[in-house]
């Protein structure tokens, strides 16, 4: 199996989809000829033609609406929003329309499509290229929200998302597009080639949405996270020597409560980590659900490790980001409680 980074894996997923399903159509700002600012659609227009992969005007609401209209006619659009920070002009189309077409028409119309968007910080993107706005969308009935953390999952989940028949907000942790990140700033970039999940099959396969994965087994504490922080968690476990169990959530809606509850019932201690600001973040949902499910197994309060309730700062990025060392401090708080 070839080693791929996340960009190559996403590109491979779209290549497979375009090749095998004439209803798949791809568009976004700079997504056509140029292949996207992160090159996820690189070469696809040249291979499949202008009518399959094309540039969209800079109007995120119109991009989302175009996907909704095309889905109503049976296409399977994959729309790229250039940065997750730019998704807000499309919020009415996504929240009031896309999410509810199946429901409000009682199943007469559907709006199955995928909104792909580079997400998260750690790239010196400042406050308009670093956001993790997943909680805005996990609050919306009718949307699925997913965040893969590695090349293998990125490809399998994108194919599963397109084939799901319902709208999927597909956030891509751009800090780890080209290699896993251990949460220690200013180190040279690691490579996916040396990561087991950097091995990506060429053809079609899917990674089931709604299923989490225990990526490290341990007994002392459960750390639940998604995206970039999965790798920070692995580094925190190695560096601290803690017997940490790490759950890569992958799907936020729906999230895999069974895997979470089984782990928490075993360890009795939980850190929930997200890059997004703390208040009303997705970690809050997880913490609330865990205490409902596992209250009597808990040995310590659930700890939320998050970004701060500030906009994402540019120069002080690493004071905002839940780094490896901050994560270790959180874990110690919970394991020593």
């Amino acid at each position: 199996m070839p080693a791929m980074n996340i960009i190559q894996a996403l590109n491979s997923a779209m290549d497979v989809l375009l090749d095998t399903d004439p209803d798949v159509i791809i568009f976004g700002e700079d997504a056509g000829y140029f292949g996207g600012v992160f090159k996820a659609t690189d070469g696809l227009q040249a291979k499949y033609g202008l009518d399959r992969v094309f540039d969209a005007p800079i109007n995120e609401a119109a991009i989302a609406a175009m996907a909704i209209g095309m889905a109503a006619r049976g296409l399977k659009p994959i729309a790229e929003i250039q940065f997750a920070d730019y998704i807000f002009p499309a919020i009415d189309q996504i929240v009031s329309e896309m999410s509810r077409i199946r429901y409000r028409s009682a199943g007469q119309f559907t709006s199955g499509c995928v909104i792909r968007s580079p997400w998260g910080g750690g790239i010196r993107g400042g406050q308009t290229h670093s956001m993790s706005p997943e909680a805005f969308f996990t609050h919306v009935p009718g949307l699925q929200v997913v965040v893969p953390s590695n090349p293998y999952d990125a490809k399998g989940m994108l194919i599963a998302a397109v084939e799901s028949g319902d709208p999927v907000i597909f956030f891509e942790p751009k800090r780890i597009y080209n290699g896993p990140f251990d949460g220690v700033p200013d180190k040279p970039l690691a490579s996916w080639a040396r990561h087991p999940k950097g091995e990506v099959p060429e053809g079609r396969y899917t990674v089931e949405l709604g299923k989490a994965e225990v990526v490290r087994e341990g007994a002392a504490c459960t750390l639940i996270t998604y995206g970039t922080l999965v790798h920070v968690a692995e580094a925190a476990a190695e560096h601290s020597g803690l017997d940490l169990e790490i759950i890569d959530l992958k799907s936020l809606v729906p999230y895999d409560i069974e895997t979470i509850a089984a782990s928490v019932n075993k360890t009795g201690r939980v850190v929930v980590a997200q890059e997004a600001p703390r208040t009303s973040g997705f970690a809050a949902e997880l913490a609330a659900q865990i205490q409902e499910e596992c209250f009597y197994a808990l040995e310590a309060p659930i700890f939320r490790l998050t970004g701060w309730d500030t906009p994402y700062p540019h120069a002080h990025e690493w004071a905002y980001f839940p780094t490896r060392d901050r994560m270790i401090r959180a874990l110690k708080t919970v394991t020593e409680a």
Binding site: A65, A67, A72, G74
Partner: peptide, 22 residues
Amino acid sequence: TISGNLGTQFPQAVGYAMACAY
């Protein structure tokens, strides 16, 4: 399906029309 949020159907109709042409 008719929306109560104004105007959302306008660009959706364009997307639908594009799909018909496609």
